[in-house]
Design a protein around this nucleic acid. Structure first.
Lengths: 324, 324
DNA sequence: CTGTTAGCGCTTTCAC
DNA sequence: GTGAAAGCGCTAACAG
């Protein structure tokens, strides 16, 4: 070594709590600075069995719906001393290939906001790589998950709605296979039924603004008088609002009340002021990373399902109750 | 080895173009499948000097402005056989620390949509890690960049504007330190001057919808009659539109014409229909990854600056010219 | 075509 | 406190 010490000593300098004298530490640090040296994490991981890498799986749709999630996850992971190895999937579907590749990098753990199929999850078990699902569920009882209580969110929304005249109620769901949409719609149906509010059969769309816009005419047809549309997410709700106003000549909320779910930034824009349910995305990200880290440390056991409570955001797109 | 062959043979099976007999290959593959084995990329990288990792640096603001970029980069990187190591910075600022950590993972290359400071770029040179900047510039002449021709974009916009009466023209820039905003504003000023259109002194905001909204009153004050506001990005432009309509009682485009830059999805929503400049984000991502891969392969040399041409998107927020 | 050997850059015993 | 030696899982050069 150019600093005049052995390799082991250099190694000790770059690890905390290793026994090194102040003098040699200084010497080594000086040499390292001069050579712009920093230890190769990759080589280290070979022996420590820790890469510091966290595999993060996202899909195009999930990324579009929550552009911040990846960023939040990144921040939390970095604060915990890890790095994100991101795998971007074009759509939901088979994930075993991607999982295998992630595993080939010997990540310390995996976070997925994509729907991981059973094969993928079962690959992680023998590899001792813990998995935490973000706003996703799985049949595998041993997998930890963090999510938002979609069902409770819809109940909040329906309770709010029920305080004012609703007219005919229609429901606009996301894609048929989307579990989050399903949870939300089930919550809405349950709450509506409990409140004794009738509703039209659920229509499905694709979670996008365009999808919401194009579904509006069909959604509202065959009924007179005021109506209410409950959408499975904000993007579709905003599409419905624009379709009402610019294509059907209807006023929101006077003719059609609209609600969403997510509380994306646009929901608060003056053009929309959409009543919606706020998912605590930031807290969800924090909880996800924390849970994964505990799994990695071995201080928690797998299979925990943590549901965070969303909040109602009442804005002008829904009718006011008698009190308002 | 449990398949009854040597380790080197196993290694050969998992590398393409290595000489292995069909029989042994089958044997090894069977054993691998049974054990769910796949080679450790990390260990491999130690000897091949290739990790397959591409460091990607993003910031909160850049991620918010172009949520798709990271996804597109990911897709392109994965198609080229690489993986993304993402570092998320809370804001633009010092980047040397983050760079050092990325380098510690011996990435094959780095893509940054954050402003990398000189110290960071100069750390990558001795490490032989090529860097490509995404929509960013640097004083380091040896660094490759891919970006959008902001200047040309604004010229397209001004030419379009000049075909119709503009009234008083004001400019709303992004933060003072933001290079992209600066490029765009310089382009606008140049084009306006060339067209002989006068304009008020440039105002600065923060690139956000809220920022645009709050700047509007000041922007439009002290003038009667129709006006035109040229914004450095779409988010602010949409904020200006909403402020005009919902706070100042002004019509767009009749009283105030508004233009943006980026062509974010919301720009095309019926509530806004914002005239703007479309950055070819997808193509930019592709070009960035391609350039980096060539740098890594050694088939290209560094320092290239590639500017892609943006497109004008005329919508209802700007006034129509005599022909329209 | 296949096995043997050395070694990538680090950490970890174990002496000293 | 510090150095020497072994070895993490793989690939590369060389025999056979």
């Amino acid at each position: 070594m150019l600093s005049g010490v052995s390799q082991s000593t250099v190694s000790r300098v770059f690890r905390e709590g290793a026994p090194v004298s102040k003098t040699t530490r200084k010497k080594v640090e000086a040499a390292a600075a001069a050579l712009n040296y920093s230890p190769n994490q990759i080589a280290r991981s070979l022996i420590t069995q820790r890469t510091g890498l966290i595999g993060v799986v996202i899909t195009d749709p999930s990324n579009r719906a929550y552009p911040d999630v990846l960023f939040y996850l990144g921040q939390e992971i970095q604060e915990s001393g890890g790095r994100m190895l991101v795998v971007a999937l074009p759509r939901d579907g088979e994930t075993a290939g991607a999982t295998r590749e992630i595993l080939a990098y010997h990540v310390d753990g995996i976070i997925s906001s994509a729907i991981l199929d059973d094969a993928s999850i079962e690959m992680c078990v023998p590899a001792h790589v813990p998995v935490v699902l973000f706003n996703r569920s799985t049949s595998n009882a041993n997998t930890s998950t963090v999510g938002c209580d979609q069902h409770a969110g819809m109940e909040l929304l329906v309770q709010h709605m029920a305080a004012a005249p609703t007219g005919r109620v229609s429901l606009l769901a996301g894609p048929e296979w989307a579990p989050v949409s399903k949870d939300r719609m089930q919550g809405a149906v349950y709450a509506l039924t409990r409140c004794g509010i009738e509703f039209a059969p659920v229509m499905h769309s694709d979670y996008t603004f365009e999808g919401g816009r194009q579904s509006t005419r069909a959604l509202l047809s065959g009924a007179d008088g005021p109506q209410t549309v409950i959408c499975a997410n904000d993007a579709m709700a905003l599409g419905v609002m624009d379709a009402c106003r610019f294509e059907l000549g209807l006023r929101v909320p006077e003719d059609v009340a609209v609600t969403g779910f997510d509380d994306i930034p646009q929901a608060d824009w003056p053009s929309y002021r959409l009543t919606t349910i706020r998912q605590p995305v930031r807290r969800m990200a924090k909880a996800t990373v924390r849970m994964l880290m505990e799994l990695i440390e071995g201080t928690a056991s797998s299979g925990e399902r943590r549901l965070l409570m969303p909040e109602l955001r009442v804005r002008a797109s829904s009718r006011e109750g008698p009190a308002g």
